[in-house]
Amino acid sequence: MADKGELIEIRWHGRGGQGAVTSAELLAQAAVSEGKYAHAFPSFGPERRGAPVLAFVRIDAMKPLKIRAEITEPDIVVVLDPGLLQIIDVTSGLKAGGMVVLNTRKQAEQIKQEFGINCPLATVDATGIARELLGVPITNTTMVGAVLRASGVVKLESLIEPLKHRFGRLAERNINSMKRAYDETLIKE
């Protein structure tokens, strides 16, 4: 997507403590390492564990980013916690042709019907993968794998260095979670 030289805007929905901000940061770092222009930032403020949070990433392969405001019309929405669908309209402002990437055990068709989602929906059981490979239900790095599969916004290999830098001795497990999610993500048009 980003290779076309268009601005890609990604909005992450998570809960405080799930690592949405870290996901956004890692994705931006990977894009910068590919020579793209990118930035990432949280919905600013004193976040509380468990409360809904937002994080944002912009990536542009061609032009420096000259905008400093929250993303209100994203191309991609990533949802780390399936429970958020009950309380937030995650598709708010989603651009025509946009996509939702969701952590869920349910089938995409069921989610689409239940929540009236009309755009393409990528799903993966990130909580299951994270529990198995990380030992904790923290889905941020896992969901990065799903985003890459669904959008190809950066290369999977570009995440390896940022993950190593961020997680040190825990990096390998996170890399494995990301790769597993990359392989298991299903996309329903």
Binding site: V32, A38, H39, A40, P42, F44, G45, L65, R68
Partner: peptide, 12 residues
């Protein structure tokens, strides 16, 4: 530098 809009950005 603007708080958050600059201090908390990850950028190149």
């Amino acid at each position: 530098l603007d708080g958050f809009h600059l201090s908390h950005m990850i950028e190149p």
